[in-house]
């Protein structure tokens, strides 16, 4: 009974509370809250495309860092380990269950995709981010660290995902998957470098969990952050002119 109580207490602390729709206060300077506010969360079951499980791993020496210390550092300095050109606007309270973060991701064609994630789960050995409607994929990203052999620590990123809509599915097939692989490989390389491992080798394993596409989810395209971010970017000159006119004398 005590074990069940302990499990329930740990679980209540480590999992996010239920939310129907995401809410975010004011956006950090430079971040665009275009595709997060009011969106529902989407797990790997709600997406459109083929379901993939992608696992990226790097081994670190345990005399440099223990698994829990590694996760603590990863949470605390999460944005630092992201590849250049991409921004993770961490919640003010850090990586904690239920917190929402905004993302600006670099896409081909100098397009910046504005989206976000919610921290679904966090404990001392792992944490999981979940995507909202309109993100390029519907799914979870779990970051963890476990002992590896007698003297190692395995840092891992595991993505369980489906492309959110047909356009993102096409994009992933036409190079998006490879770009995403590079993204997490570089993230782990940076994490390893921060712990003194200058040339870390990242192991990548990709498993197709469900090859079927969920055609009933094609309407997800309505929420597409790529389309909305593109419209927002194209509207920048108009917003600039409006802003200058409203500041000009006589207004």
């Amino acid at each position: 009974m005590a074990d069940i109580d302990d499990a329930t207490e740990r679980s209540t602390t480590n999992w996010a509370k239920k939310v129907d729709r995401l809410t975010l206060g004011s956006a950090p300077a430079g971040a665009v809250n275009l595709n997060v506010e009011g969106r529902r969360l989407t797990g790997p079951l709600q997406g459109f495309g083929t379901m993939w499980q992608k696992t990226y791993r790097v081994r670190l020496p345990r005399d440099v860092v223990e698994p829990r210390a590694l996760i603590a550092t990863w949470k605390e300095r999460f944005p630092e380990f992201w590849p250049g050109g991409n921004r993770f606007y961490a919640p003010l309270t850090g990586i904690a269950p239920g917190e929402v973060a905004l993302l600006n991701l670099a896409l081909p064609g100098r397009l910046t995709l504005s989206t976000g994630v919610m921290v679904l789960y966090a404990d001392e050995e792992s944490f999981t981010l979940m995507t909202p409607q309109g993100h390029m994929f519907a799914g979870w990203i779990t970051f963890s660290a476990v002992p590896a052999g007698d003297d190692g620590v395995m840092a891992q990123v595991q993505v369980l995902m489906r492309a959110s809509d047909p356009i993102f599915e096409l994009g992933l097939m036409l190079g998006g998957h490879a770009q995403e692989d590079r993204f997490w490989q570089e993230t782990l390389t940076r994490l390893a470098a921060a712990h003194g491992l200058a040339s870390a080798s990242v192991q990548t394993t990709v498993i197709c969990v469900d090859r079927k596409r969920q055609w009933s989810k094609w309407r997800n395209v309505w929420h597409s952050s790529a389309i909305r971010s593109s419209i927002y970017t194209l509207g920048a000159p108009v917003r600039l002119i409006r802003s200058r006119l409203s500041r000009s004398p006589g207004n």
């Binding site: 069940i4 679980s11 679904l120 789960y121 404990d123 792992s126 779990t142 595991q158 969990v209």
Partner: peptide
């Protein structure tokens, strides 16, 4: 069951996927 963490939930997703 006692404690279920996020990796455990991902395993359940895997079972759901296998069922399809």
């Amino acid at each position: 069951t006692g404690y279920i963490n996020s990796t455990g939930i991902a395993l359940i997703v895997g079972l759901l996927a296998k069922a399809r």
